[in-house]
Amino acid sequence: MNRLKQLFREKSADKDLLNIYFTAGFPALDQTVEIMEALQKAGADIIELGIPFSDPLADGPTIQQSSERALSNGMSLDVLFEQLKNMRTRVQIPIIMMGYLNPIMQYGLTRFLEQAKQVGIDGFIFPDVPMSEFEKEWKEPLEALDLTFSFLVTPQTTPSRVRQLDALTSGFLYAVSSSSTTGGSSTQQQEKQVSDYLRTLKSLKLKNPILAGFGIRSQADYHRINSEVDGAIIGSAFIKHLDEYGATEEHITQFVHSLKAPLV
């Protein structure tokens, strides 16, 4: 059974979910599985593993820089799959890969999906794959391999388009909390807009659970998002933390715990 699907099947409505993103190959080339293991131990529920790309259009400066560093450290899909070979003996939580289409095109889609399945990946997020191409090239092999694919929706996505994207999505729908690149910040007024937006999205009664991301950084953000939808996705804030403190188990634990600690 796909671990991501299982997670949502077993999840009770009031359970919070933390999905943490980091770029494979950052801060050092060969810490990928180590970081994943530490995240699992600390209590992350899902890991979103970033495949670095030279031109990450949807990303703000933090993730851009982590991608540049990862590439100059020597990260590539071949290296990554090699690192992930025995990952499932150490990490049991759902893992999804996030990236851009071009490196996958060069690697070969079929080969990529098969490799990913083999090392125990559960699903994908590729923000630049158009719906039409997804239906033509991705849908069938993903279903055959029982792998999920999350489309993004934003506050500007019309309800009818949200439904189309939801219909093609499996696993969870990725709600971009405000129309921005990753790592943006928000004011109190924007926070309210985000909550209103997520409420509207929920009211559409979509088939998929909803996780929200982009600009989520603090413990307060984490709890606020979880009170509206099924979970929160945190990326840039974690990358910054790794950059500042290093990828040690102690600091990763501290990051996750400080987010998940109940608000007093």
Binding site: S54, D55, L71, D78, Y100, L101, N102, P103, I104, Q106
Partner: peptide, 21 residues
């Protein structure tokens, strides 16, 4: 160049075998 995706469209571009521009 080889076929790839840069700046939102599919075209010919100079890239590594790994798909980095």
């Amino acid at each position: 160049g080889t076929i790839g995706i840069l700046h939102g469209s599919k075209s010919l571009m100079m890239q590594t075998a790994d798909g980095q521009v």
